[in-house]
Design a protein around this nucleic acid. Structure first.
Lengths: 229, 229
DNA sequence: TCTAAAACATGATAATTGTCAGTTTTTAAC
DNA sequence: GTTAAAAACTGACAATTATCATGTTTTAGA
């Protein structure tokens, strides 16, 4: 049992930091550490979740299947985030599927522990509330982008977002490597359209590619493009 | 002071129902009733809100300006809903503007009362959390619709939504009358495109119109259309 | 009631994006 | 290492949607 929540720095980045010692002990005693392989799924939309997942390492995509059978990625999660809280709080089925984009390390925390703490520790509720408020704001922004911007603008924005949030390696390629399909499902476009746009960006010198890897060359130009110039 | 929160049925539909007598008294003593005329604005995106609005009557649109200058309506609020909580909780500027679609009656509740209660009454926090969880789920659905469905599908869906949530009058017209511009800003399309589609739906007998008013004639057909047939 | 402004409407055309069909490259399993 | 499957890519074409131009109707205020 070397991995105790008490010693886990990750929790400083999420709502679990509002827990007191006793509560933290309960969480730690009941949590189950899991390793998720790239491509594996944490949960599928429509499932009932028995708990939440705290991401120690790796990135996952939260997506939803449209009635036309296409996947839409609603959000990418990063280290420190908690997944599945919406479903546990609303005592509802998940509306999203979670799939690992690279190898992940997560802790599963049973819902009883979470809901007990929500009922007794208002600071914890408030922390969860703040995080959800943040998610809601981001979701609103996505709605506006989806409806008012072109695919090209959304793609430019995606590259900037990925660089900002996940960084790049020593050769200037985005640290988070996504498939073309994933890109298409983030910006909400046909895969072929998206590939064409990547080619275009590359030809124009905005980005560089090497296999799946993509590197941002002209962030300013991409930003202008995203803003509509 | 005839209008006391203690006697207001509206609060049964929102998170205020989790308040105890004392808390409710505080809310009631500090609240300010306001009448908002159709077309007037409750708040504008980027403002700092000093409180939340509890909707007693009327409908408002929550919208956001895109960088291209077009408005996107993110959500319509109805009787009983509380507006501005996200901003108050996150101690953040509003990301949305709120505009009255018809004449409204709202109560303004100062943020201090709200945040005090959030800090002390976990049931209230939990209720707010549930409502926000619901909003977040709805936002996810909107994202998927925006990116995966055609304008025609989204319009069909909008008519069904409006009938279901706001009802219709004795002549079969939607109770909530929106301008063509508002419709365009809900489904995320150019106003001209939208008007054309309304004409098409009318020609095909799916809906009827009389001036601004629109009535759903074939809900099943619209539903099939929205689902992609 | 008159009048200007706003909202509604339609046509022509252009831009954006999707679909289908096929080729090449990469990946992963045996 | 070979090979089958998956992913990446390209072209041709079609469908969707936006834009611009213009006319008509409705609405609200003097």
């Amino acid at each position: 049992m070397e991995n105790r929540c008490e010693n886990c720095i990750i929790r400083q980045f999420n709502s679990l930091r509002a827990l007191n010692k006793d509560e933290l002990k309960k969480v730690s005693d009941s949590k189950i550490s899991k390793k998720i392989k790239k491509g594996d799924t944490l949960f599928i939309e429509g499932q009932k979740l028995d708990g939440v997942f705290c991401v120690r390492d790796g990135v996952s995509k939260l997506s939803k299947l449209s009635s036309n059978g296409k996947e839409q990625i609603v959000k990418l999660t990063n280290k420190g985030e908690i997944m599945g809280q919406r479903s546990v709080i609303a005592e509802d089925f998940t509306n999203l599927s979670a799939t690992a984009i690279n190898d992940m390390e997560v802790c599963f925390i049973p819902k009883e522990v979470i809901s007990n703490t929500l009922n007794t520790n208002p600071y914890f509720s408030l922390e969860v509330l703040r995080h959800m408020a943040h998610d809601l704001k981001e979701a609103d922004d996505v709605i506006v982008n989806m409806s008012q911007k072109t695919v090209k603008q959304r793609l430019a924005e995606a590259f900037i977002y990925l660089r900002k949030n996940y960084g790049e390696d020593e050769d200037g390629f985005l640290s988070l490597t996504l498939s073309r399909d994933d890109y298409a499902n983030i910006v909400g476009a046909a895969t072929e359209s998206l590939i064409r746009m990547i080619s275009e960006f590359k030809k124009k010198g905005f980005i560089k590619t090497e296999g799946k890897k993509i590197g941002v060359l002209k962030e300013d130009t991409l930003q202008e493009l995203a803003d509509g110039f």
